[in-house]
Design a protein around this nucleic acid. Sequence first.
RNA 1: GCCGACGUAGCUCAGUGGUAGAGCAGCUCUCUCGUAAAGAGCAGGUCAGCGGUUCAAAUCCGCUCGUCGGCUCCA
Length: 659
Amino acid sequence: MPSSVDVRPITITLPDGSTRTFEAGVTGYEVAADIAKGLARAALAVKVNGEVWDLDRPITDDAEVAILTWDDKEGKQTFWHSAAHLMAEALEELYPDVKFGIGPPIDRGFYYDVDLGDRSLSQEDLAAIENKMKELAKRDVPYQRQPVPKDEAVAYFEEKSDEYKLELLEGLEDGEITFYEQGNFVDLCRGPHIQSTGAIKYPKLLNVAGAYWRGDENRPQLTRIYGIAFPKKKKLDQFLERLELARQRDHRKLGKELGLFTFSQKVGPGLPMWLPKGTRLRETLSDFLKEEQLARGYEPVVTPHIGRLELYRTSGHYPYYRDSQFPPMVFSEEDGDEDGYLLRPMNCPHHTQIYANEHHSYRDLPVRIAEFGTVYRFEQSGELGGLTRVRGFTQDDAHIFCTPEQVKAEFKDVIDLTLKVLSALDFKEFTAQISLRDPENTGKYVGEDTLWAQAEQAIREAAEEMNLSATEETGEAAFYGPKLDFMVEDALGREWQLGTIQVDYNLPERFDLTYVDANDERQRPVMIHRAPFGSLERFIGVLIEHCGGDFPTWLAPEQVRVLPVGADFNPYARSVRDTLRNAGFRATVDTGDDTVGYKIREAETQKIPYMLVVGSREKEAGTVAVRQHGEGQQDVRAVEAFIEQLHTRIASELQRENE
RNA sequence: GCCGACGUAGCUCAGUGGUAGAGCAGCUCUCUCGUAAAGAGCAGGUCAGCGGUUCAAAUCCGCUCGUCGGCUCCA
């Protein structure tokens, strides 16, 4: 259908601010080709006035235009979205009765939720689908956008009896519906897509999983197939290499290899046990934080791991969160009354009782009660995984009781502490998120409006004054108060939530906590929950992956291993070890009757930061031959000089002045 | 909890219905060693558990437990 003879010129503004003139109806591809042939080849989609479009969609008016390539997130996502459609076509060829849910691109690839009836997919099936995709891609057919009236769209999917697409259509307005067609496959889709299937040369299907339709566990469970695709083999290879690297760094694998922690089916799922080396690591970490906290006015306390049900009824944790608690221990008293205890899911109720133990004057505040408190939560079985999701874990918990005016200063101090911790562990990439309440729905929150406003402002200012750039998420606050969370990326770019600082107006109210102000009136303190690590278990899990098991020297469970070259030098090696131990280092000696090469290999695979080889030369001179993990042989130096080297190393790791 | 995959020696893994295997680790002996694996021998298993099919089950089927990948939830 010939459009009206429209040759009016339009002005295209490019990202660098330059402008070019084209005839109305020019496509993104033509714009790219006008700039450079290479760009046209690399182009995957085009951004027109902030909206991502197909490259062949006509641009009819003046517009700001950016050509999207593989280097743009949106370019990649367009590519992956198209790959999802290609996979859907392959599925339909292999399984003609398949029905489709949604198939979006994600951060790393794409997935498609499909209903395969009673069929389940094996690895071989995935390979077959992948091969079919490659075969289809070779035809190199275009992705074609087609606006369709709603009734036609409905008729099409009724014909296919695809109830999922029909449900999606229900939510759409007539006039805004588009189909995309490539080869024999037609899908309901907003788009955009790349130009042609031929670019999807290297698809890789990764895994299958169950996923509830529309994320609702009461609705049918579909089969979700995850995949990724690349235009070049090299990019696919790099991706697979990174996956392999991630597997190498998996904290479950390293935890086993380095002898840090273990699980036992007899003890129970999700209940980690710390082996001697893991315990040294863990205690070094918690000692570091304890020392910092003492310097900041925290008061360590110790409280029991269980409490009466009444405590948790008052706090509101029971029975409200019953599903994620270990079942309570209930028994009958002699007089027939029922009483019971709960394995604690949180430390804060106990800490309120420490606060309530004595009267508090405004002069005492803030009161900072700290405990490495072990808590137990009955996480769903399917949720458990390594150290990052467990049923028994220790929080580096503290509760600060203060006046509303003190909230800001306390936040600043906790932010400072958290940043110090992160820097000592070499976490350079992290994000902070402030979670605020939903102003549209204030009814679901406890605490007065003015207090919320004050606290939210205090958190914002505290972050600003500490030069912490934080994102703000409205509606993400807990019902009891706003919060600030730290999200840390591990070396492979996966994000984990670790540290948290939360304001709480609820518990002081429920436990009727008070202090007396300057006018001799009883006031309600604000409670702040905070944990820089979050849980030691999760933190260490992430830390292991972050450093790939190569812990900083100050943290390494075994810092130095002395390796005598032969049995004759065992006594000297032991004396070196003892000297190091007396200097406060974690040192061992390998007196086995193996060759030096073997001992070195052992120590290297155990990722011990320093190996000291000693033989006759060293024994005579009172020296050690230093070898550093991953660095190979260093120099030979006197034992005292080596100790000095260790001190310097550790001081620089902790970014403290050498004392 | 739900969907799917997996579970063989301490670890990593072979083993498709017919006598349970390898390498490493362990133990013993020999070697006494100079910067990433010395040599030989020995020992090690209710093939996760329970039940079923079969003349015969690590192998096929069912249930349970656990692990992994997701979904859902996370005070």
